[in-house]
Write a protein that binds this DNA or RNA. Structure first.
Lengths: 185, 185
DNA sequence: CTTGGAAAGTCAACATCACTGTCCTATCCT
DNA sequence: AGGATAGGACAGTGATGTTGACTTTCCAAG
């Protein structure tokens, strides 16, 4: 039962089953690619004493302004305490605005300030440049396959969350004035 | 210059340029999929008090038995000291065997013990099951695209290292007897 | 053959980050 | 009023990573 044991339950020898070798290459590719994937924002993050958690937090607040702490928690999949530390830093540094929920005053709705949006953009651009270049180099058909495999890799629950993530949020008015028509628009 | 600014240098509007939205979805997919990707081995790792670093170390030693600490360092991309702590734990726990280099006595050549190989297999199987299932669900064409995009995402240097990684190492005799014909075979 | 530098590896101290556990406040809802 | 929920705070633990200093071994110059 070494690695050259090719007769596993799943590896029935038919054409559609991926060979162990192919799968192993995929695993390593995933590892190396993910490292590259995070390297660009990491460089910026290190300079300002932040970590990936800060980036992810900014990303998802930017994507869905006004989301609650609980919602953010669910997306990020970290503990409340862990997120809280990050969030506190971002709020203290004036990158995130935490406002009492309009619907439920127990909730906090999170928004990026202009400064926070600027950093998010800077981080995002660094990361997007790499992904965009990879997409361009690999071609649209490869991109479709890439997406398919990644989605197939997620747990059903996570995939569902991924798919139901709100759309890009077109205007996404940042919090500036307090008085607003409730859940404006 | 919000996210709806679609007129970037790279986004010239032609069909081959990925839209910002597509790229953003890809980034999020990468994030979620990587979490799923590591979740299975993480579960096992937690039980025995190890982390991902231990898994990676076992993986690459298994893949290329007898590699030196320096070589492992280059692949993992961490500092010598960081690796050393992990390596020490694995050696003390009897999962890895560190032997004085046959060519250069300063070097240490690393091998998995039977116990180490067993754990590596256990971790690897958990991870492979997911990737294999994803491959199967997405289909061979998608797998090819997946691989293409991941490789395109790596730095040239990393891609080179990825491609020149030694082959699976078929028999890969683990270290059992001390006396051997030097660099056996 | 000795000596000194370079390289491989190891050990020790320190920083960061995430997690667990627990307690607390404010608010909602019945 | 009382239980449940959203959020925040604090202490302790563990994994991971870093810098700095040290030992062993190799190699090449004198």
């Amino acid at each position: 039962m070494q690695h050259h044991a090719a007769r596993n339950a799943t590896d029935t020898g038919c054409g559609s089953a991926a060979s162990d070798e192919q799968v192993r290459r995929g695993i390593e590719a995933m590892y190396f690619a993910y490292r590259a994937f995070t390297s660009d924002p990491d460089l910026i993050l290190d300079q300002i004493g932040y970590g990936r958690a800060h980036h992810r937090t900014l990303h998802f607040i930017n994507r869905d302004p006004g989301l609650t702490v609980t919602a953010l928690l669910a997306v990020l999949g970290v503990t409340k305490q862990s997120l809280n530390r990050v969030l506190r830093a971002l709020i203290e540094d004036g990158l995130v605005d935490s406002r009492i929920g309009s619907r439920d005053r127990r909730e906090r709705q999170l928004y990026l300030t202009d400064k926070g949006a600027a950093l998010e953009r800077r981080l995002s651009q660094a990361q997007r440049a790499r992904v965009r270049a990879a997409y361009h180099a690999a071609g649209p058909q490869a991109v479709e396959g890439f997406r398919l495999v990644l989605e197939a890799m997620m747990d059903a629950e996570m995939l569902d969350r991924f798919r139901t993530l709100p759309p890009p949020h077109p205007p996404a008015a940042p919090p500036s004035m307090a008085s607003r028509t409730e859940a404006a628009e």
